[in-house]
């Protein structure tokens, strides 16, 4: 069995990706009040984007972020126009429920499409440097995963800056807080919704790319990643991207501890149990400010 400290290192490394995965979901949920349960499937597609670019064009997966992120932005815009933009007209409670159903249908369709395009096999992008390992104080740190963690942090930080500094970033935050007040200050909230959804999708694409390098992807990973992202959102609350990132790290570490204590197969269960308990303990306080 892997010793605890090694587990913790690996947990921290994947925790960064949990944080990134959650950041996109949190942004969309916080701003549109739309729960996109197909978020994990968007991550999956991002991973296949990177995989394709690598397999067909030999593009380095980290470099492929420069393609995947803009493509995901556009895809997010299209999804908003065709699907989720219809839901935001409804009052909030119906909105969350309908978005859940739509996201669910979308998830099924995307997963089935991925199976047709890439088969159900597990894949990962194996670069020349995939096996490189740093050894720090006797602990093995896979270089690719370390780089992914750093990139995940950079992306969450970047999103934080965008929301804090950019004119429309502020408009997005204002819309998240009070969309009627945003309208009254002259913000086109539909546009803020569109931008937030596109940004959230772009983050999902980026997360998927990083997953495909350090870990592996298959058409069926969507649900698992949606759940991870949901767990982090529930743990970290809405509103702060850096808080969400830290929440991801915490989940990674918690999984590592539980894998050591209860055994590897129970790695997932602990996070889910915590998720359920926190959710029930704060059934309303969680998502409202």
């Amino acid at each position: 069995m892997t010793p605890l400290f090694q587990q913790l290192v690996l947990g921290l490394l994947i925790g960064g990706l949990y944080g990134l995965a959650a950041a996109g979901l949190s942004l969309v949920f916080g701003v549109l009040k739309v729960l996109n349960v197909a978020h994990g499937q968007l991550i999956m597609l991002g991973g296949y984007g990177a995989f394709w670019l690598f397999a067909l064009r030999g593009l380095d997966p980290f470099a492929s972020l420069a393609v995947v992120i803009p493509a995901a932005l556009v895809a997010g815009g299209v999804l908003y126009w065709t699907l989720f933009g219809w839901v935001v007209r409804a009052p909030e409670e119906t909105r969350v429920k309908n978005s859940l159903l739509i996201g669910f249908g979308l998830a099924l369709a995307l997963e089935a499409a991925a199976v047709r395009l890439w088969t159900a096999d597990e894949r990962s992008v194996t670069t020349g440097y995939a096996g490189a390992v740093l050894t720090v104080a006797g602990l093995a740190v896979p270089v690719v995963r370390l780089a992914s963690l750093a990139l995940a942090l950079a992306l969450c930080g970047g999103l934080h800056l965008v929301l804090a500094r950019w004119r429309w970033g502020r408009a997005i935050r204002a819309t998240a807080e009070d969309w009627e007040a945003a309208l009254m200050t002259g913000i086109d909230v539909r546009r803020a919704y569109l931008l937030a959804f596109a940004l959230g999708t772009a983050l999902a694409g980026a997360a998927g790319t990083l997953v495909s390098v350090g870990y592996s992807i298959s058409p069926s990973i969507g649900l698992e990643w949606t759940l991870k992202a949901l767990i982090v959102v529930v743990l970290a609350g809405l509103g702060s991207m850096l808080g969400t990132f830290v929440g991801g790290l915490v989940l990674g570490l918690a999984e590592a501890v539980s894998a050591t204590v209860f055994g590897g197969p129970y790695r997932e269960v602990v996070g889910l149990v915590v998720f359920f308990v926190v959710l029930v303990a704060r059934p309303r306080g969680l998502f409202v400010r």
Binding site: E93, V96, L227, I231, E268, L272, F275, F276
Partner: peptide, 19 residues
Amino acid sequence: LRGAYFAIGTLALGEILRI
């Protein structure tokens, strides 16, 4: 839990049992 939170909460429960 209300509405969508009931949905995701029960989704988690189902997964806990399955795993």
